[in-house]
Design a protein around this nucleic acid. Structure first.
Lengths: 348, 348
DNA sequence: CTGTTAGCGCTTTCAT
DNA sequence: ATGAAAGCGCTAACAG
């Protein structure tokens, strides 16, 4: 239980005052080169590290960024967190993440825990930015924050334009010849992302001059894909030929459901995901999906946040960054079965 | 930029000393009930939160736990982190995670960053506990730590007994009739977990009176599964009938490789994973795998760590907890193809 | 049960 | 370029 070295010991060993040692770490140019190097050498030699609590107390900055995500289990957020953490580390910040499990009440509690830990700012992935009580708390205490994957004109946001991405997916499917394109989503009420993607589906269908089909809304937690199953069990002329999934996890489930219904992908059903989580490309068939730049979203959000914290452009206007998505052309989409080939298959 | 309320303001508002307010938060029973409640009311009313930096400075405890993982992207560690974070939160601790990306040098740097942030202790997932330079640093500064998923007699460890779990897998496969059972793994040199599992394979084969096949060692980062592919392309009588994968990610790849080689699973090849990541059960075929209690591993490690931090049983002997694994009987294993059915297929 | 007192280690004017 | 001094907000003896 040996005590760590303090700035004073280094100062004494160097024959200077504590102030000088402090400057070496915080404003190196204000110290003559040779003294600086001597002090650095001494510091290394003694394993000296400035005490973060003392520095935080004095400067009123913890150099810690709070992060709230729905869960670490979804690779989307895990990758995002990686982006946040690496960018933060680069700038000398640590990261303190908490999860809300997609639950509004927990969001509020989580934000408060972060606040109690004295974070300098937060990156938040909210269920719904229009009704998040925690935010007012942040504003009252004027703690900077940036939303990730959310959209809201009044706050800093970093994410993707889910709307137009889904429009493009519809276009692609249309180009392949699909006309009966359905969408499956988690509960729309549970996230603005899901709503945005669904809106994209509607617009896309309209632009493509196709009739949108009823949304298949499933409880994300429960693994019941019954609605989809009963849809897929309809005759080939009635069921959709393509399915747009609001996220990759749902796409995996849909793939499995299709298999269980005896439909082969992509011959009898095309499936497209949204998220681009890496595991999708390891599977057979490889998932076709919209690839979100999760890591970059985290990085950008962090950069933006640290700018806010540092006070550059204070009382700045809210900024929204929508990053470009990629597209993985996997093995789960193809042309829709024609009547002929369909009949042929039945005969066979 | 309104200043947060300090303990002094609450004290004045309540007509007591700062010490009393402090006691309300730290040793509530030492304060008369009515004064305590009055103070709590006042604190809430003013949104008072004890300043964590000040408290950390004074007590020399940050109430933050450092966590080092290879990556957040692997659901195994993401789930573990969730366990750590929830347990930590329960005990009033925050968590500060960093990733090492399976790289020894980064491990050392990451540990130092955590140290610089003044964490009270760490949960570590190391590449190899026998040669981790960072650990000596921790011991020198007597910062408590617990290893997760690693095994080492000299340190606190929480994990699973990969050895005997794999032995059991071999037994299962043997019971199904398999005799040519191969194992595929990431680089053994890259983790003691991989080595432990491989040893389990060897023991298991020996006990089952089977001849172990050469380990298929793949570079985990590169996606080359060539070695496996060439093995699977051999004639049915030469190639293995079952494949034990050292982790689930490898299992997914193996499944894909098998498909690409024209082998159907489980008819022509049985595949077993290790990890039990959740997505495995959403796929078709559902992955058969050993389920590690990742969340519990995180929880236990954290509990143990906080005990060490709190100084209960100081200079205690190192403890190792190996938690029980589960088993998911998915759709990727079955009896090996018999000669008869094999010939039949060839003829067809 | 409550108050007084003395710092925890660092940063930052303000001098020199 | 460097030093002296004050104090960030809180907690833990020690008194009473």
């Amino acid at each position: 239980m040996n005590k760590p070295v303090s700035i004073l010991q280094i100062a004494q060993a160097a024959g200077v005052s504590a102030a000088t040692v402090s400057r070496v770490f915080n404003q190196p140019d204000k110290v003559r080169a040779d003294t600086r190097e001597m002090i650095i050498a001494l510091a290394n030699q003694h394993d000296y590290q400035p005490n973060s609590a003392a520095s935080a107390l004095r400067t009123q900055r913890s150099k810690i960024i709070g992060v709230m995500l729905p869960t670490f289990g979804n690779p989307v957020f895990a990758e995002c967190l990686e982006g946040i953490a690496s960018q933060a580390a680069e700038q000398g910040f640590g990261v303190m993440p908490v999860t809300s499990d997609y639950d509004s009440e927990r969001e509020t509690k989580a934000i408060n825990r972060l606040l109690a830990k004295g974070v300098d700012g937060m990156v938040l992935v909210l269920r719904d930015p229009t009704k998040a009580p925690g935010l007012s708390q942040l504003q009252k205490q004027s703690v900077p924050f940036v939303l990730a994957y959310n959209q809201h004109p009044k706050y800093h946001c970093v994410g993707v334009d889910g709307h137009s991405e889904v429009v493009r997916v519809v276009e692609r499917l249309r180009a392949l010849g699909h006309r009966k394109i359905a969408m499956i989503s988690g509960q729309l009420s549970a996230s603005d992302r899901a709503r945005q993607r669904y809106q994209g589906y509607l617009s896309g269908m309209q632009s493509a001059n196709l009739k949108p089909l009823a949304l298949i809304e499933v409880d994300f937690i429960a693994s019941d894909m019954l609605a989809l199953a009963s849809l897929l069990k309809q005759s080939a002329t009635k069921r959709p030929t393509a399915l747009i999934c609001s996220n990759d996890l749902l796409a995996f489930r849909s793939l499995r459901t299709a298999t269980q219904c005896g439909l082969s992908v992509p011959d009898s059903l095309s499936v497209v995901g949204f998220d681009g989580i890496k595991i999708g490309q390891e599977l057979s068939p490889m998932l076709t999906t919209v690839i979100q730049p999760n890591h970059d979203i985290g990085q950008w959000a962090t950069t933006l946040l640290i700018q806010s914290i540092s006070g550059h452009a204070r009382t700045q206007k809210p900024v929204t960054h929508n990053l470009e998505c990629g597209f993985r052309l996997g093995e789960t989409i193809g042309s829709p079965p024609t009547n002929r080939s369909h009949l042929a298959r039945d005969v066979f």
